[in-house]
């Protein structure tokens, strides 16, 4: 949740998220570890965004969702152009 408690929308109509994880500068597999460690911080049905330059995240966030039975919503970009991957917690 951001400071105002509202869902954050990515720029350019990219999927919104209830919590955003800043994984800029992190190398694989750290962004996915952050995702796994923080998915419990949103309620079931809410979503979480991973912002990461790590090129492996593009494959690994959707793969994590498949393996952990969570929903991969899609990819957008953060304000600074860094890729932003959105996940919805299903369980």
């Amino acid at each position: 949740m951001n400071a105002s408690g509202e869902a954050r929308h990515g720029p350019g109509g990219t999927p919104p998220a209830d919590l955003e994880l800043d994984c800029r500068g992190m190398r694989c597999p750290l962004p996915v570890i952050r995702l796994a460690n923080n998915i419990g911080d949103v309620a079931v049905g809410q979503s979480l965004a991973v912002v990461a330059e790590d090129p492996a995240a593009r494959s690994d966030v959707p793969a994590w969702c498949r393996m952990r039975e969570q929903e991969y919503v899609g990819e957008g970009v953060a304000e600074d152009g860094v890729p932003r991957y959105v996940v919805r917690r299903l369980r």
Partner: peptide
Amino acid sequence: LEAMGVLTHG
């Protein structure tokens, strides 16, 4: 691994 859509790390 990327083309297969599977986990690329580990």
